[in-house]
Design a protein around this nucleic acid. Structure first.
Lengths: 137, 137
DNA sequence: CCTTGACTTCGAGTTAGCTCTAACTCGTAT
DNA sequence: ATACGAGTTAGAGCTAACTCGAAGTCAAGG
């Protein structure tokens, strides 16, 4: 069980931010130790790390909440909870997740495009530098 | 030559946003037609589209300004401007661009990781659905 | 017992990035 | 001529996402 400051070390978020995320419902409140201090599990940490990555990729907290709501269900089923409880919404959730995947893949295409543009420009620079060197001989 | 509303159609930005970007220096002011209305070129549009992509990938306006400052120099050299004028800062710019590329590639790795996580979860759902179907027979 | 340090809540303040309103100026169609 | 639609500026207002300060609680060490 980890304290809030141990979680900040592992995730790069500040304690302010962690408490803020909890307040607005992006994170569920972790268990508490005697005295009321937050006590995080390893699984909490990996969820937060996932959240941080999605943030870096430009998703808003609202989108993250929307998308990761899904993950939980899967985890709960895998941890042995009765799948019948979730069946009614299973198709809906599969649909959301597929949409999420498509979004990610679109993002990857754009990113690949940016990378090749940047590479092109960089090659231009390097060629120019080479020419400059040749001239000096 | 395009009006501001034609540019909004092509880029998805609002006229408010375009003028705002100009005010804070993310975009250079385009030429004007008689009466003072902004008049954009095709090259302006593709620059703005590039900016929008970088935004979607989570870069701040400040980072975008920092990174794309570079592109201009290259374009100006390719358009025949004297490269000697830029030589003093050429190495510096190559360095910035390389860093930019590394950032993009790191982002791509994170994205790939997210994609495979999502795919895994989706497969979990699909398998579960399949099992459910089998049971019904 | 008392200090220290890491936690707690609550609520106010800050920054980035828009978003809109008001008041105005054009060019074109009726 | 006048009304309309699309543009203009300056500046106020708004939302998301933190960020911090104040005041308090608790557990362990001297």
């Amino acid at each position: 069980m980890l304290t809030i400051s141990q979680v900040t070390e592992r995730t790069g978020l500040t304690p302010y931010t962690l408490r803020y995320y909890e307040k607005i419902g992006v994170l569920k409140g972790p268990s508490r130790r005697a005295g009321g201090a937050r006590s995080y599990t390893e699984s909490d940490v990996s969820y937060i790390q996932c959240l941080v990555t999605l943030k870096k990729l430009g998703l808003s907290l609202e989108e993250i909440t929307e998308f990761t709501r899904d993950g939980c269900v899967m985890d709960r089923i895998q941890q042995g909870e009765d799948p019948d409880h979730f069946t009614p919404t299973l198709n809906k959730r599969t649909e959301i997740l597929s949409k999420y995947l498509l979004d990610l893949e679109a993002k990857r295409q754009e990113l690949d495009h940016m990378i090749s543009l940047a590479q092109e420009k960089l090659n231009g620079y390097l060629e120019l530098s080479k020419e400059r060197c040749e001239e000096l001989k």
